[in-house]
């Protein structure tokens, strides 16, 4: 992989989130993978081929951030142009272009010039052009940036539908909610460095569980104390924090009969929290 210190693998058929603050090196990484930029050292391979390889490009696609396209053309003309780049013949193109428009929900707008398109529609055209070759691997760079909530949702759905078809999507974003909702795995990079990587569950479920107990006796507190990392008093409630599932069960067993168990809440950390935490750490 490319970049200075970025190294990762993407599994087939997953949506791989690639997040980091602006300027973290997301786009650079993608461009390197596409062969638009050249790695200063090391090598970039995609689908087992060196980055930029023509054969590899047959099987991948790319949607840059906020593309504009040739605004004098209609949606259909733009797609026709991109189809030509895959050397599709006229008959194939005639079939493929309406399919693509259909796929991104622009069937009725295909004959309108792009300058009349909204930002969301342009983005759909962008996705449509990325789908022409039914790629195995799609690179989406900030696909939802600058979109209104409805368009945002539509684009997310489009991305999710790709996974259903068994495609691998490489999604870069600084919009964490995007990634959180759709990605299987996430890599977080900051300042050109890979900071953290894992499945959504690995990254987020590694949180703590809070067991809230009403009026525990001091014996009980003493008994549970070794199992919890932290104990806090909140009025009549005492909260026990623990990391592992095993300890959760042990604490529940201990509490049972001794006091009233009010709640057991697994503290699922949001990606946002994780991200902020990581970026902060990076600053120190």
């Amino acid at each position: 992989m490319a970049g200075d210190k970025v190294s990762f693998t993407v599994n087939e058929g997953e949506i791989f989130g690639f997040i980091g603050p602006n300027g973290a090196g997301k786009t650079t990484t993608i461009k390197t993978l596409l062969g638009l930029l050249f790695p200063t050292s090391g090598k970039a391979e995609v689908l087992g081929k060196p980055a930029g390889d023509i054969q590899a490009k047959q099987r991948i696609s790319y949607l840059p951030e906020s593309p504009y396209f040739y605004e004098h053309m209609t949606g259909a003309e733009v797609l026709d142009f991109y189809c030509r780049l895959f050397k599709m013949n006229a008959a194939t193109r005639r079939k493929r272009v309406p399919e693509l428009l259909e796929q991104v929900g622009l069937s009725r707008d295909g004959q309108r010039a792009l300058r009349q398109y909204s930002k969301g529609m342009l983005q759909r055209i962008g996705i449509a052009q990325a789908l022409i070759n039914e790629p195995d691997l799609l690179f989406f760079d900030e696909p939802t940036s600058g979109l209104d909530p409805i368009a945002h949702k539509d684009i997310q759905d489009l991305i999710l539908s790709q996974r259903k078809q068994g495609k691998t999507v490489f999604l870069s974003s600084h919009q964490l909610s995007d990634v959180e909702n759709v990605c299987d795995r996430v890599a977080i990079i900051n300042r050109g460095e890979l900071v953290k990587m894992g499945s959504m569950d690995e990254l987020l479920h590694a949180g703590r569980t809070i067991i809230t107990v009403s009026h525990p006796g001091s014996d009980l507190v003493a008994k549970v104390q070794p199992l919890s990392e932290h104990i806090s008093q909140d009025g009549e409630f005492t909260k026990f924090y623990t990391q592992t599932e095993e300890n959760v069960h042990k604490i529940i067993d201990a509490v049972r009969g001794q006091a009233t168990l009010v709640s057991v809440v697994p503290q699922r950390q949001t990606l946002e929290d994780l991200f902020v935490e990581i970026v902060r750490e990076g600053r120190h």
Partner: peptide, 15 residues
Amino acid sequence: FERRTIYTILAKPVK
């Protein structure tokens, strides 16, 4: 470059 079309084009199998 400004319109970023060059990226979509070069990401296609275009030499």
